[in-house]
Design a protein around this nucleic acid. Sequence first.
DNA 1: AAATTTTTTTAGCCAAATCTAAATTTTTAT
DNA 2: ATAAAAATTTAGATTTGGCTAAAAAAATTT
Lengths: 219, 219
Amino acid sequence: MNFTASEENYIKAIYHLQQSAALVTTNELAAQLKTKPASVTDMLKKLKLKDLLLYEKYQGFQLSNKGKKVALGIIRKHRLWEYFLVNKLQFGWDEVHEIAEDLEHINSKLLIERLDAFLNFPRFDPHGDPIPDVNGRMEVSKQINLIDLAPHQPAEVSAVGSQSSELLDLLSHKNIGIGTRLEVVKKFIFDHSIEIKIEDTAPFSISQQLAQSLFVKPL
Amino acid sequence: MNFTASEENYIKAIYHLQQSAALVTTNELAAQLKTKPASVTDMLKKLKLKDLLLYEKYQGFQLSNKGKKVALGIIRKHRLWEYFLVNKLQFGWDEVHEIAEDLEHINSKLLIERLDAFLNFPRFDPHGDPIPDVNGRMEVSKQINLIDLAPHQPAEVSAVGSQSSELLDLLSHKNIGIGTRLEVVKKFIFDHSIEIKIEDTAPFSISQQLAQSLFVKPL
DNA sequence: AAATTTTTTTAGCCAAATCTAAATTTTTAT
DNA sequence: ATAAAAATTTAGATTTGGCTAAAAAAATTT
Ligand SMILES: [Mn+2]
Ligand SMILES: [Mn+2]
Ligand SMILES: [Mn+2]
Ligand SMILES: [Mn+2]
């Protein structure tokens, strides 16, 4: 079974959306893919026909087991290419998402196997997201949102909540990346901002919005 | 200017065909692309409209200067990816053409620049074909067809005339690859077969067809 | 319980890239 | 110079993925 780039984009988007809620809605998916609800309905019918989707009209939908497997395959390709771009071609972590969006649709099992081996079977992509293995299995790290980290608990940044260049730009400016060690000094009720301290540098404040986009592993 | 994968395939095919004859015909191109003449005519109109093609109906066609530049860009991408697949991902030279057919349509100037640098600016692909540089320039090696090599003139295999897996399979079997040193022992009029000798091994015969698919540089 | 709003689907249209069949032009043979 | 054959183009359909506008269903207010 091979799928078009468009089908793969739908499958991947549904997979990501159903991480936060079991059932996905037509409008949600249309917003995510920047397309119209009518176009989504068309594709839902097609995916159901191919047994990738559990879908009853008006009732929301979710990927079938087969659909989930396909999704993990696409995510695997995306993240392996991102790792390649950053660690072999010297791209910045904020430059790779768009290119990986195209590369992920190249269909060659052998290519991905060889790429994986060439990269030494990496387990996380440059944004800290786990890379599924050939069987779709990936590490489930017990990372928590920075907003939930207890004050004075040392932790390490393990992932970012989005790949927007705006977020990644802000993070580079503040010298925060995957692996950065930090602790929360104080949380402010007034604006929900958080004061953090990176290793031996002076503490500084970050907004609630930014804290919510950072995931950390307590050390 | 960005082009669809389909447009790029047509442009590349026209480029290759016009190496042997200035003007290309509809049927030739249809055969090359395994499509129908009617489909070719449709695309010719589109390419002409985009100023990539010099074309008057019923009169044959050829790429404009702009079209040639685009073609060289696609060929550059194709050959760089082939080099990557063989020299980094351990593919055999007979396994890479199909995958490169897809990878060549990924559109990112930066990606190709970085890939080129990562590979150390290779000048020939795994099949001995020259890789155009950023400006579309490439080496014009003074290679000749093996069929035209003078007897007892030592030479080195520099390129193959096609990427068909049938040809590459035959070559591996006979232990002939890019860089193989050989000389012609004798040419037979009867069936135009040629007896060749590889370095210190016993001489053997190859068919006219095979000899025509091999290019060599006299040493 | 009815009315209103929101969500989702259907109906109908469009563009790109194909195809087949028919028409036209060019080339080749008589 | 005609007639026949070959090459090329046009006409009309099809598939895929998208769109808008209208209809229908579900959810929310009153
Ligand atoms: Mn990404
Ligand atoms: Mn990522
Ligand atoms: Mn090739
Ligand atoms: Mn090649």
